[in-house]
Amino acid sequence: MELTRKDILGLSDFSVDEINLVLDTAESFREISTRTIKKVPTLRGITVINLFYEASTRTHTSFEIAAKRLSADAINISTSTSSVTKGETLADTAKTLEAMSPDIIVIRHACAGAPHILARLLGQSIINAGDGSHEHPTQALLDMLTIRQKKGTIEGLKVVLVGDIMNSRVARSNMYGLTRMGARVTVCGPAMLIPRGVEGMGVTVETNMQKALQDADVVMMLRMQFERQQGAVFPSVREYARLFCLTVPMLKEAKEDAIVMHPGPINRGIEIAPEVADGFRSVILDQVTNGVAVRMALLYLLAGGRQ
C-alpha cells in the first residue's frame, strides 16, 4: 500500500487502506516524539510552507513541529485576511508561492475550496489544514488515531459528534473517515445547525443530547463557533450550554468506558464542563500528541518518493 495522491484535500475520497496506512505510519512516528533527540533527518532539503489565512495556534504549531522533527524547513506565512483585500487573487498568491519552489504547502483558509483551487493551480503537494466549513482532514486522522489507540479499533464503535455540525469542518472530515472505517456515527446539535441532507453522509441525526449519547463509545465535542454564524442563529450561549454542554451527569448517558474528545480550543463551560475536560475519560491531550504524529506521517508520505 502506498499513498499515491498529490494532495491531502479531504477525507471524502480516502479509502480504508489509505486511512490505515496513514494511521500505521503515524504510530511509528509517535515514538520519535518520545526520544531525547526528537528529530530525524528524513526530509532534509524539503521546504514546507505553512500558509495560514485564519488564526490557528494549535494546528499551525502542530504542522510546524511535525516539519521540524523531520528536518524539513518550515516557513510560516500568517495573514488574518485573504490577499483579495490587497487586490491580489488567490491565483496570484499561488504563483508567487510557486516561484519560491516549496515542496509542500499547508493551507488553512476561511473559505471552503481554497485548497482545491491551489491544488489545481500548483504542482506542489497541498495539505488542507482546514477550509471554511468544509474539511479538516488532518484533524479527523488524528482523532481516528486517538480512537484506535484507546479503543483498539474504530469499526463497530458508536461515535457521537455534538455541536455546530453545519459549520464544522472537523465534523465533516470525521463523518467521512469514521463511517468509512465502520463506526456508527450520530451527529447531535441544535436543529438549525444540522445541515440539510446530512443523513446522506451515512450518519444518524439526533437533536436531543441525552438520547444521542446512549451507548456511545466516543463523545466528540465540537467547538461552538459563535464567530462563524451570521446574525441570530442561536438564542444565546447560555441556552446552548443548557442543552449541549457535556457535564458529568450528561456523560453518564454514554457507556461507562466512553472517551471524551475535543479538537480544541475548548470553550470551558459552554460545550464542555471543566471537570469533564480535565477528567480521566478525556483524551484531549492525546489528540494533540497524535496530531504531531499524523502530520509527520502525512509530510513523510507526501514527500517521499517524489524523485
Binding site: 515514538e31 520519535i32 513523510y300
Partner: peptide, 20 residues
C-alpha cells in the same frame, strides 16, 4: 533506518517505514 536513508525523497518508490 527508513527515516535516515539518503534516498527517501529521490526514490521512485513510496517509502514504507517500520517500527524502531
Amino acid at each position: 533506518i527508513t527515516l535516515y536513508r539518503d534516498d527517501v525523497i529521490m526514490t521512485d518508490k513510496k517509502p514504507k517505514m517500520g517500527e524502531t
